[in-house]
Design a protein around this nucleic acid. Structure first.
Length: 936
DNA sequence: CCTGTCACG
DNA sequence: GACGTACGTGACAGGG
């Protein structure tokens, strides 16, 4: 052992990605029994590794071995050619979570596992092959990928593990018609549809080989292309020379990848039975565990058959868990202890993580401490930047408290753990912690999030905050943060909390989170929401993290000027209003306004709300406006007041001084239907409907040299309704690209499309939206300002023309009444706990139940688009900034606008597939401009 | 802290 | 027959 790689050595290089895909496609979609984790590909992968190891006896056995994986979707080839591998299908959603597990499997077999950001596995294989060959050793590449055939020769061979067929120089010649040294020339000409390498159109492998053999090399061929007799072929070679040369650079493997290890690190090692069997048992591979235990002469660990017994009732925790006891948590104050925790977490494969900070704004808050928890009851707090002097120290020293690991030392130690692909990081609302840590240079991954698990399983049932979940599912009330920080004016920040108190609070949070994870993880499967969680909730965390941290540039001067203009106009309106009223009062007070309108002025139609005050909503003032001038003035004043206070004033306070941009925060688990919600500030309700309001969007601008691009789904909810309720007439109208509201009106009222009046169309539009909302005669009447009976007549006629809609509404409410939930097309569950209630609440629940699958499916679709978007635009100088339910807003360099629109539109229009094949096309409209008003 | 109002999809 | 209703959000101001 320990000899240097050289003559007599034999290196095996396994193409890990090929193994994974083979395993995935060869096996049915197996899941782990206890929790439903998809596991088919990992199982096949382990079987293949095992078979490989078993077959490695004899004189030809390798002395060195490594499994090589791809890493990152963007490589230097994408820089050469942005369409490289662009038509690759997205990774199946149930495969993605298995990828890190195959790395872990490789390590469990004690085989070196190598990858390099920005490089394909093929390049690493090429580099190692060259190194091994130059050192005088032999190489076997275990793969059947033709892209690797250029490496064969001089002691380098390939082995197709499936067919157990060796590929040597003759094998390559058989496949390509040329020797390995000319394989890239042939590939450059023939191209590759799988990797989207263009090549020379009309020339395949056969012709390419013929030409290369005739001219000797690609360069000679291109230089002497005019000698070719066939005119078509000659022209192609001359015209497409650039494209062919680019293709060669794409297929040419890089033998000089910067590796951070040497061949000697790849020496064959025997597996450690305990590690390997432990991993296999954790995966619950019964047969394979037994087989390998036999082969190793070790005892097979017991894998229980029963799924983990998970209590659903509050307070009934698993019996082996210790009680939650805040006095038992460790305070980590030196590097030795920290390293110990990190080692234990790495070994375990998962760790609950919670950060403590100076505030709730992730873009501004500073890190104060980090907590880890590995087992129920085993949690620690690592204080980092607590200040000396307690909460009652009025002058609060700025010196750091004693006994804390220097921040940078701790972060350096934590970074490998938090970024380790083989260790699951568990959090409650992990986006918060990920954003904070991202500002300290740490990219937390992979992650699980108990808040999102609860959301996937219990959406609509209850909230998903940690305190609530702990109380309900663990029967434990965590220490309220108020006890540490106080409230109101005397509130302190976490850095002022004495470390001893902080340990109890913070470590408890990590402990609770870990316990919730243990409870929830196996339940996802039973609740049939694994796909939803894995595909629609969890992957959004890194996407939103990037969007929120990018922020959007907002021009303060524009807002400030508008504020002043609004203030002036409001002052003018206010004095007019006072004049009309005959006295001064607070226009902004609905109570005072009501008294003026209905008591003092004696206008008709005063309705008192439940607090005994007159109602003065916009619809009421609108009605009064025909009788008196004052209500119109109030309406105008209110509009300006809204625009000023909520937008032109408040938005300025949200401009981050460090970035000059506004960073919203999206809550993933905020809305019942699966929609996102935007807070601090809400950038999903920036005015657009009124001309005056829309101008606020002029303050949302692109950086110099860049453009804002907006893409939005056209009528997505109506399209989904047409699909779900299966309304042929609507589907047809969408397929033909008709104006859907006009088509509806035509169908309902028998008016030909070319005779349609705006008013009839408007009514049909109101009905279409009403249907999505769970239509009622009252609601439609109010919206259209028509008598209730007339509205009911419209609805009746609508149902007559589109009976499928009525059926959908009835079936959906019946389903909800029976199951207490409804579902989207993608399996998102929305609970409807009020559906069987008595009284008006049932009506609310019914309409919500009708609306939820439609709104929710639309929400799922744009979530899918967002999850795929990063990969789709990876090669472009563009960033996704905002989501507004059916719209995505990007900031992109001017030159790349068209490319971005094409790429993003593709993703959005195809976002339902392959899980759902809609009967209607999804159409995405695009706009661009220097600001959001122009782009939208 | 709750309510009314109003901005968005 | 009466009851109150279009679906989903978040922010701000007023008023107790």
């Amino acid at each position: 052992m320990g000899t240097q790689f050289g003559k007599g050595c034999h290196l095996h290089l396994i193409d890990g990605s090929a193994f994974i895909f083979r395993a995935y496609h060869a096996l049915p979609p197996l899941t782990r029994k206890s929790d439903g984790l998809p596991i088919g590909a990992v199982s096949g992968f382990c079987n293949m590794l095992h078979r490989y190891v078993e077959g490695n006896s004899g004189p030809d056995a390798p002395t060195h071995v490594a499994v090589i994986f791809d890493k990152g979707s963007h490589t230097f080839r994408n820089d050469l050619y942005d369409q490289y591998k662009a038509n690759r299908e997205a990774m199946p959603e149930d495969l993605r979570p298995q990828i890190p597990l195959t790395r872990k499997a490789t390590e469990a077999f004690n085989i070196a596992c190598k990858e390099l950001e920005g490089y394909e596995a093929d390049d690493i294989i090429a580099t190692l092959s060259c190194q091994a060959r130059d050192a005088g050793g032999r190489v076997t590449i275990i793969s059947s990928d033709k892209d690797l055939m250029q490496l064969v020769g001089d002691g380098v061979e390939m082995l197709d593990a499936m067919k157990n067929k060796r590929i040597d120089v003759d094998g390559v010649r058989e496949k390509f018609g040329v020797g390995p040294d000319r394989v890239v020339d042939v590939q450059a000409l023939a191209g590759d549809s799988v990797d989207n390498v263009p090549g020379a159109p009309g020339i395949g492998i056969k012709t390419a080989a013929l030409l290369i053999n005739e001219f000797g090399s690609l360069e000679a061929l291109l230089d002497r292309a005019d000698e070719i007799k066939q005119p078509k072929r000659r022209e192609t070679l001359i015209e497409k020379r650039d494209q062919i040369e680019l293709s060669k650079r794409l297929v040419q493997l890089d033998c000089n990848t910067p590796l951070d290890f040497t061949l000697d690190d790849l020496e064959v090692k025997d597996p450690d039975p305990e590690t390997l069997l432990g991993f296999l048992a954790e995966m619950e591979f019964r047969t394979l565990t037994r087989r390998i235990a036999d082969a190793l002469g070790a005892e097979a660990p017991v894998i229980t058959d029963a799924p983990a017994d998970v209590p659903d009732a509050p307070g009934s925790t698993a019996p082996e868990w210790p009680a939650i006891d805040a006095s038992k948590y460790e305070c980590v104050r030196d590097m030795d202890r920290l390293r110990d925790w990190i080692a234990r977490a790495t070994d375990k494969g998962w760790v609950a993580v919670d950060t403590e900070t100076t505030g709730l704004n992730e873009m501004r808050a500073d890190l104060v401490g980090v907590c880890l928890s590995i087992d129920p009851g085993a949690a620690c707090y690592i204080p980092l930047t607590h200040k000396a002097g307690g909460a009652d120290d009025l002058f609060g020293s700025d010196d750091l408290a004693e006994g804390q690991i220097p921040l940078n030392d701790a972060l350096d130690a934590l970074k490998p753990l938090l970024e380790d692909p083989a260790v699951m990081k568990i959090g409650q609302n992990m986006k918060y912690d990920a954003k904070v840590l991202r500002r300290y240079g740490i990219d937390v991954a992979p992650i699980d999030d108990t808040m999102l698990m609860s959301y996937a399983m219990h959406g609509g049932e209850h909230s998903h905050g940690m305190d609530f979940l702990s109380e309900k599912y663990l029967g434990h009330q965590p220490i309220p943060i108020k006890e540490l920080l106080g409230t109101g004016k005397s509130q302190i920040t976490f850095e002022r909390v004495p470390i001893d108190d902080a340990v109890k609070y913070a470590a408890e949070d990590a402990d609770v989170t870990l316990r919730l994870w243990h409870l929830f993880k196996p339940q996802l499967h039973k609740a049939h929401v694994t796909r939803v969680y894995e595909g629609l909730e969890r992957p959004l965390v890194p996407v939103l993290t990037r969007m929120e941290m990018a922020g959007i540039k907002v021009d303060r001067d524009t807002l400030s000027r508008m504020s002043n203009a609004f203030a002036q106009k409001m002052a003018g309106l206010e004095s007019e209003i006072h004049e009309l009223a005959g006295e001064a009062f607070n226009v902004g007070s609905p109570a005072q306004l009501g008294d003026i309108l209905f008591d003092k002025m004696g206008l008709e139609g005063g309705k008192r709300g439940k607090n005994g005050k007159y109602s003065t909503g916009a619809d009421i003032l609108e009605d009064l406006a025909t009788e008196h001038e004052l209500p119109r003035r109030v309406l105008d004043w209110r509009q300006l007041s809204k625009l000023k206070s909520t937008y032109t004033d408040a938005l300025q306070d949200h401009i981050n001084p460090d970035t000059g941009r506004v960073h919203t925060s999206y809550s993933i688990a905020g809305a019942n239907t699966g929609r996102l919600a935007s807070t601090d500030p809400n950038l999903q309700n920036i005015p657009v409907r009124s001309e005056e309001g829309r101008r606020i969007r002029e303050a949302f601008v692109a950086e110099p040299g860049k453009v804002l691009v907006s893409l939005d789904y056209s009528q997505i909810e109506l399209r989904i309704l047409a699909h779900i309720a299966d309304i042929e007439a609507l589907k047809q109208a969408f397929r033909e690209g008709q104006d859907i509201h006009a088509a509806t009106a035509s169908e309902m009222f028998g008016v030909p499309l070319d005779e349609m009046t705006p008013d009839v169309r408007r009514q049909a539009k109101a009905i279409n939206f009403g249907v999505i909302y769970g239509i009622s005669g009252f609601g439609l009447a109010r919206n259209l300002r028509i008598p209730r009976a007339e509205a009911q007549g419209f609805i009746d006629r609508y149902f007559e023309r589109f009976p499928g809609i009525k059926t959908y509404m009835e079936e959906t409410t019946a389903f909800a009444q029976k199951h207490n939930r409804v579902e989207t097309l993608f399996g998102r569950v929305i609970h409807t706990p009020e559906i069987n209630a008595k009284g008006p609440r049932a009506g609310f629940a019914k309409r919500a139940a009708i609306n939820a699958p439609i709104q929710g499916t639309a929400a799922d679709i744009i979530r899918r688009a967002m999850v795929r978007m990063d990969d789709a635009i990876a090669g472009l100088p563009a960033k996704m900034l905002l989501q507004v339910h059916d719209e995505l807003l990007f900031e992109v360099e001017e030159g790349a606008v068209d490319d971005l629109i094409a790429a993003a539109r593709d993703v959005m229009q195809g976002a339902a597939e392959p899980v759902v094949k809609l009967d209607v096309p999804l159409i995405v409209d695009a706009g661009k401009g220097a600001n959001w008003a122009e782009a939208h």
